[in-house]
Amino acid sequence: MKILVAVKRVVDYNVKVRPKSDGTDVDIANVKMSINPFCEIAVEEAVRLKEKGVATEIIAISMGPKQAQEQVRTALALGADRGILVESDEDLQPLAIAKMLKAIVEKESPDLVILGKQAIDGDNNQTGQMLGALTSMPQGTFASEVNVADGRVSVTREIDGGLQTVNLSLPAIVTTDLRLNEPRYASLPNIMKAKRKPMDTFTPEDLGVDATPRVKTLSVEPPAERKAGIKVADVAELVDKLKNEAKVI
C-alpha cells in the first residue's frame, strides 16, 4: 500500500509572530520555519502504518518555495521513503494546492492520502476536503483513529458533540486531528539517511495547474489587546452585564 502524505512549511509554533509594520502580511523574515504540527501527525500516522506492515511506501510532498525541501527532508528523516517538492514562490492557496495534489495523486496512485486537518498559519482547513471533491475520493476528516483492513480504512472523526466513525473504501483521504498520535522525533541515524533519499521537484506548470492566488489579503493586524476584567457583586449583575453590555445573551 502506498501513502502520500502532505507537509506544509509554516512558521514554527514557538515563534511569536507580528504583522509587518505596513500591515500587508505577517512578518516572517528570519523566523524559524517547521513542518505544520498537524502535518507532523500525518507523517507519524503514515510511518506507523508502515511499521505495522500495512503500508509499503510513503511519499512526502510539500509545496512552496525552494526552502520547503527542508520540510520534505524532515518528513524523510521521520520515515518517509521519498519526497516530492512542488516549487513555487506564489502565495499558494488551498484550491491550487488541492489541484496540484490531484495531479500527483493521478501520477502516483496512492491508496491513502494523509494530510493535516489545517495549517497553523492560514487555519484554512480546506485542502483535504477540496482534494476529496476534485478526485471523488472518500474522505475522513479530523481523524483521531485510523485503521486499515481488508481494502478499507476506518476513520474515527472528532466532531461536535463526540466521535463519529466512517468506513471508507480505498483509495481515500484522511485529515489528522491533534489526538491521532504523538509524533516522534527524528533520530540521528535517520536524519543522516534522509540525505540519501530521493526527492523529485516539479513546478505548478509541470502539473498543469495555474497556481495564481485567487484570494487577496487586504491587511493584517494583531488581535485587540485583552482588557482587564471586572468583578461583579452577584449573579443578577452578571446576567445584566452579559445581556446589556456584552450583548452575548
Binding site: S34, Q69, E70, R73, T74, A77, Y185, A186, S187, L188, I191, M192, A194, K195
Partner: peptide, 15 residues
C-alpha cells in the same frame, strides 16, 4: 545544514 537543523530540533525536543 538541513541535517544540523533537524538534529538540533530533535535534541531540543528531547531535552
Amino acid at each position: 545544514s538541513n541535517e544540523q537543523e533537524m538534529l538540533v530540533d530533535t535534541v531540543k525536543a528531547f531535552v
